[in-house]
Computed example of a mutant assay.
Amino acid sequence: MITDALIDPFGRKIDYLRISVTDKCDFRCTYCMDEDVTFLSREQVLSLEEIVHVAKTFIRMGTKHIRITGGEPLVRKNVLWALEQIANTEGLEELTITTNGSQLYKMAQSLYDIGVSRINISLDTLKADRFFALTRKDKFQQVIKGIEAASKLPFKRLKINSVMMKNHNDDELYDLTKFALDHNMDISFIEEMPLGVITDHNRAETYLSSDDVIDALSQYYTLTPSDIKTGGPTRYYHVAGSSHKVGVISPHSHNFCDTCNRVRLTVEGRLLLCLGNEHSKDLKSVIRSSMQNDALDSSKELENAIIEALALKPQQHHFNLDEAPQILRFMSATGG
Rank of each mutant, 00 (worst) to 15 (best):
D282G: 06
D170H: 15
T199P: 00
S285N: 14
I14C: 04
G335V: 11
L134M: 12
L173A: 10
M107R: 11
T125R: 06
I144W: 04
P154R: 04
N304R: 14
A5Y: 13
R130T: 09
H252M: 15
D4R: 12
D175R: 09
G336A: 09
A216D: 11
Q316I: 06
Q109N: 13
D175Q: 14
D175K: 10
L181V: 07
L74T: 04
Q292E: 15
E268H: 12
F58P: 08
A55D: 01
K137L: 03
V248F: 09
E301Y: 03
V54R: 04
K284Q: 14
L302T: 06
H168F: 15
I160T: 01
D170V: 12
P225T: 11
L173S: 13
M164L: 15
I7F: 11
G269D: 05
L328I: 14
T224M: 10
Q219P: 00
K145V: 03
Y236L: 08
D36L: 11
M193N: 07
W81Q: 04
L158G: 00
D113V: 02
D113T: 06
S250K: 11
I59M: 00
P314L: 10
R118W: 03
E43D: 15
C32M: 08
I228S: 04
L123I: 07
D186L: 08
R329N: 14
R136W: 02
R203K: 14
F155V: 03
K77R: 14
H183R: 13
N277R: 13
E90P: 05
G101V: 00
Q316V: 07
I147P: 05
Q315C: 12
M165Q: 10
G231A: 07
S298T: 12
I114F: 05
N161R: 02
P233N: 05
S298C: 10
D34W: 02
L80F: 03
S162K: 06
S122L: 02
A150H: 03
G146K: 01
K178W: 01
L158F: 06
Q219G: 12
G232M: 03
D36G: 09
N202P: 01
P9Q: 06
E49T: 13
N202S: 12
L158W: 02
R28A: 07
N78H: 11
I287Y: 06
G269T: 05
I214T: 05
R235H: 14
S218M: 13
C260L: 05
R42T: 11
D8C: 09
D215R: 13
L80D: 07
S209M: 12
F27G: 01
R130V: 01
E72N: 07
H279T: 15
R60L: 03
F39Q: 04
V143G: 03
G269Y: 00
G231L: 06
G276K: 09
D211H: 09
F27K: 04
I59E: 03
A180R: 08
L123V: 06
H183M: 08
A82G: 05
V267G: 08
L134G: 00
D113N: 15
E192I: 11
G70L: 03
S122N: 04
T57M: 05
E323F: 06
V79C: 03
G269C: 08
F179C: 08
C260H: 07
H238Q: 13
T38H: 11
I19Y: 01
